[in-house]
Design a protein around this nucleic acid. Structure first.
Lengths: 354, 354
DNA sequence: TTGAAAGCGCTAACAC
DNA sequence: GTGTTAGCGCTTTCAA
């Protein structure tokens, strides 16, 4: 039996020497030919290419990584890849990266513990050439670890000082949502916000959206009322609970904006279950234009998530090329999509019947 | 200036020799200590650990990969990571893998061209220790390339002969959906099916669901009517179009089953826009228990996608351990979730008014 | 239990 | 243009 084991070579991969031998050249020439660097005569090059194809040779990433220091891999770090926003951002980025010949190492950091572990061990260290992080509560320690990597690094969705970023203008997007409601005559506008993380450092999209909400109200001469803000919601269930909380309050607002569509959709569910007419009694606006927004007929402020991912990847690629350098802040526009969950508030004279 | 460049060492990582020197041992001992293999005296081991920590040393993955042939990385290959099913399956698998100390290389193969390119170049070759592929139309060539890798390999969602698999029983799940409708008295039950890929080889979940639909009807003494099957739909938009097609037909069925929830949700949107009462005039059942199913109150057959991903990852880990071997077929149960989109069909005497 | 030495498979200077 | 020579930073026999 031992012989049997010994007889089976561990998956035979042709090495660069096999190719060199077959093509009748040196390993160096094979390397040069295959990667198109240095000068090789067309004839030799072709011979090498043929030999490589015949042996279906492809260089060991480990060996070339070790020798060259490059990995042709980028790391993507994201908090909730199961969610629509991140799933699509990752998809957009992964496609752009793949097209450029880069592999993607994906790190899913769903909670603070996972993040701490990750940033302490820093598995990215010599595994990737560049890093893309997606909207995530990062402590200063985390961002320091990222900077210490000393490689191209871009963030998606939220800005970190001096780090190139692709994002939307969160405050403006939220102002757009609130303006829409104000225009329709609403004055009691509540907000359902996401989780606040006080360790945050770079997870500013949530804060920016809250700010946009307050700004829009104040600009209209309205003072934001604390009882009309519910924070801490997460996902559909969170939105549903937040809406229930709002409904338990002293006065039901005539309109609700949500930090993102999933919260709005959860709110919609609660409203429907409580038979509160939408938009008859309460109008609802989200932010995302989630795939499901059209299904539940949700008015929302759209952001092109997939494109955001692709743009971030392109930025990274340009940084890797050296085509680009330094600090960048790419702000992608959003747009209001009016659907059926918003309407003018009910006027006194008319009662809110079905 | 040249000196300046030379003076800045490219990101100083401690090497195994630095640790060895600091601990006063050889590189071999450092290696053994850090990985807990071979025998090292507790004292030495501790000294090495301290030294490593002090220098915040961690081995270069490329170097150790090259030397040992192992990568502590697994490849996940998935077709549409932006979609709910895959996003969650990937999340579940990634978490389980991360916990076991494996990194994840993600390959997003959204179309046949990308798949062909991928399987031809086979970037997985020496980059990973194992592969997890998710329900995807694979040609025989593709699966051969995967097998040729000669490493642990499991599929998620659809079976490939002789390859360990974690999945649900698609035919049974669909039969469950149809039975639910039959029990309620429906006889005209249509099906909205997904894309058929004739190059398929391992993308059998779709075919199995279609089969389950037909089986259930026949078992009830009903013959499946071709005009009640619409195939080729994809995502919400696809489901919406398919439903429109069904509505354009000679007779509107009293119930519709969809191959998966997103199709059902799209169908629901079309029905609502056409003011067709659900479940008054048409009942709808999906399969997935997509996050949004509760929002649109969709009756569906639930599958635990996240768990499917985690189970597949565990299988892979056991295969890597050598704890397990050979062919496995883990079938995870599904369950009917009755919500508001299904009801008994309208009886003649009662008209279908609002 | 520990160390020395020989690679793992490639790239990058440097000669020729 | 092309080959030679050193490594890249580890792991792994094999001796001691």
């Amino acid at each position: 039996m031992p012989e049997e084991a010994a007889a089976r070579p561990r998956s035979r991969h042709a090495s660069i020497l096999d190719v060199a031998a077959l093509a009748g050249v040196s390993a160096a020439t094979v390397s040069r030919s295959l990667r198109g660097r240095g000068s090789v005569s067309p004839t030799t090059r072709q011979r090498v290419l043929d030999a490589a194809r015949e042996l279906s040779y492809s260089a060991s990433p480990h060996a070339s990584g070790l020798a060259s220091g490059r990995t042709t891999t980028v790391g993507i770090v994201a908090p909730f890849i199961g969610r629509w926003y991140f799933a699509n951002a990752v998809a957009g980025a992964a496609d752009a990266l793949a097209e450029a010949g880069y592999d993607v190492l994906l790190y899913h950091l769903a909670d603070a513990a996972a993040r701490d572990r990750f940033f302490e061990r820093m598995p990215l260290a010599r595994r990737v050439d560049a890093v893309l992080t997606m909207t995530m509560p990062l402590t200063e320690e985390h961002t320091l670890a990222l900077r210490a990597l000393d490689m191209p690094f871009v963030t998606l969705g939220a800005r970190i000082p001096d780090v190139p970023c692709v994002r939307i203008d969160d405050a403006t997007a939220m102002r757009t949502a609130v303006h829409h409601l104000l225009h329709q005559g609403h004055e009691q506008i509540a907000m359902i916000a996401g989780i606040e993380d006080d360790r945050q450092f770079g997870f500013l999209s949530s804060a920016a959206r809250r700010l946009g909400y307050r700004q829009a109200l104040r600009a209209a001469g309205l003072e934001p009322r604390p009882e009309l803000s519910v924070a801490g919601a997460f996902g559909i269930e969170g939105g549903a609970r937040a809406m229930a909380e709002l409904m338990a309050g002293p006065t039901l607002p005539t309109a609700v904006v949500a930090e993102y569509d999933e919260l709005a959709i959860g709110a919609l569910r609660t409203l429907r279950q409580a038979s509160v007419a939408v938009p008859g009694r309460v109008s609802v606006v989200g932010l995302d234009d989630h795939e499901m927004a059209s299904v539940v007929d949700l008015t929302t402020v759209a952001q092109p998530v997939r494109e955001l991912g692709a743009r971030a990847a392109q930025l990274l690629l340009e940084l890797l090329d050296g085509t680009l350098a330094g600090d960048l802040d790419v702000v992608v526009p959003t747009r209001l999509v009016v659907r059926g969950t918003t309407a003018a508030p009910i006027v006194r004279a008319v009662d809110g019947g079905c």
